[in-house]
């Protein structure tokens, strides 16, 4: 059987890699990709815990999996809007560097 500790550990590692990507990279596209990594880490944890409490044959419990579907949908929406913002930024600033978007900065 797959050890659940290791699945959750993988989820933690994936999340931290996403955090590092957002903190360190200066390219907005890669920062969005890192956000996706973090969302996927959460999804992995949801699926793993749903597998830990799967219900019975008569009444299977699929709450975690349904929630993952929700997260996937919201992630798709987020990427679509994020790309729109990115294109608008690139049109105005000619760069995908978030440091360039400093018009509202004090």
């Amino acid at each position: 059987m797959i050890p659940l500790d290791h699945v959750i550990g993988l989820s933690a590692v994936l999340f931290s890699l996403g955090v590092i990507g957002v903190l360190v990279r200066r390219n907005l596209i890669v920062m969005l990709m890192s956000v996706e990594l973090m969302l996927n880490a959460a999804n992995l944890a949801f699926i793993a815990f749903n597998r830990l409490w799967p219900g019975t044959d008569a009444t299977p419990v699929l709450d975690g999996q349904v929630f993952v579907l929700l997260v996937i949908t919201v992630a798709a929406a987020e990427v679509a809007v994020g790309m729109g913002i990115l294109l608008a930024l690139f049109r105005n600033r000619d760069s995908a560097d978030p440091e360039e978007a400093s018009l509202l900065k004090w």
Partner: peptide
């Protein structure tokens, strides 16, 4: 995050 129990058998389907 360690010390989770073994995964139980999944229901049919």
């Amino acid at each position: 995050l360690v010390g989770f129990p073994e995964l139980p058998a999944a229901p049919v389907g």
